[in-house]
């Protein structure tokens, strides 16, 4: 009786894992290239992946988007991947020091912060100065009434926001420090926040829902996006070709349209 039950359990496990393996093998027998990329690269990398598949017959590019730190942690824990593109060099460096990248990462794009306000700019924000709670000129009290949302200093966009405040010489008192730039944008588009510090590319992607206000000092706080092939890649040659596409003219054009700067 007990043996029969154990057999049943084994058969069940076998069936389940078999089904899982069947899924991951893909629909056809073509080659797979697994690309991990920072969430802010979603639309651009989808375009580039389609382009890569067009020029490489039988190759299926599988994209996976997430926070840079998440993606790096996944690679550290052994997730199978061929190419990784992050939103800052600090997260990528964790993989470099562990020898998990194949060669040195290359910077392929830059991004700068911008103030995003809800459509119509209900709080009448004109620039960082309106959000300075540390100024003694009397503007400080007005700034208290403006709900500013930024990224937490622990994530790349938040670290950039801290540096931007330093460079601009303002003191910011956000009502919330969000986990990701998407969360900041969400608070702005929904009108909950009067202003948020996000990337130029996010403002452009959000369309009419938000208005962007350029911050002159942002040019001194530039976020660099590195891309690298990974040491454990099964498709090293293809991975390098994909990186070349990102670094090349086609990549530049797509990234440019989305608002990313050249390295």
């Amino acid at each position: 009786m007990r043996r029969a039950a154990a057999g049943l359990a084994l058969a069940l496990t076998g069936a389940l894992t078999g089904a899982a393996a069947g899924c991951s093998a893909g629909e056809d027998d073509g080659t797979r290239l697994r690309v991990l990329a920072a969430a802010s690269l979603s639309s651009t990398f989808e375009e580039l992946a389609a382009e890569f598949e067009r020029t490489h017959e039988g190759v299926d590019v599988q994209l996976s988007f997430g926070g840079s730190a998440d993606l790096v942690a996944q690679v550290q824990e052994g997730a199978p991947a061929d190419v990784l593109a992050t939103a800052d060099t600090a997260t990528m460096d964790r993989l470099v020091t562990e020898g998990l990248t194949d060669g040195a990462p290359e910077v392929f794009a830059t991004n700068v912060l911008q103030l995003a306000v809800p459509a119509g700019n209900p709080a009448g924000v004109r620039g960082l100065a309106d959000l300075d709670t540390g100024s003694s000129t009397g503007a400080g009290s007005a700034a208290e009434d403006v709900d500013l949302v930024v990224c937490a200093p622990e994530v790349p966009c938040g670290a950039a926001a801290v540096r931007l405040a330093e460079v601009a010489g303002v003191r910011l008192s956000p009502v919330s420090e969000e986990q990701s730039v998407t969360d900041v944008l969400g608070k702005v588009t929904s009108g909950e926040a009067d202003a948020g510090l996000v990337y130029v590319t996010d403002v452009r992607a959000a369309g009419d829902a938000v208005e962007g206000i350029a911050v002159p000092e942002a040019d001194q706080v530039v976020n660099e996006y590195p891309v690298a092939t990974l040491a454990d890649s099964d498709e090293a040659d293809l991975a390098r070709e994909f990186v070349q596409l990102v670094l090349g003219a086609t990549g530049r054009e797509v990234l440019d349209t989305a608002g990313f700067g050249a390295p």
Binding site: V149, V175, E177
Partner: peptide, 27 residues
């Protein structure tokens, strides 16, 4: 909580949010 309330130390940042944030720098 993160969607509706936000995340600020002592005001809206509860343990799960703090854990999720800390994971960015220190898993």
């Amino acid at each position: 909580t993160v969607t509706f309330a936000g995340s600020l130390q002592g005001v809206t940042r509860t343990m799960p949010t703090q854990i999720y944030l800390l994971r960015e720098t220190d898993a």
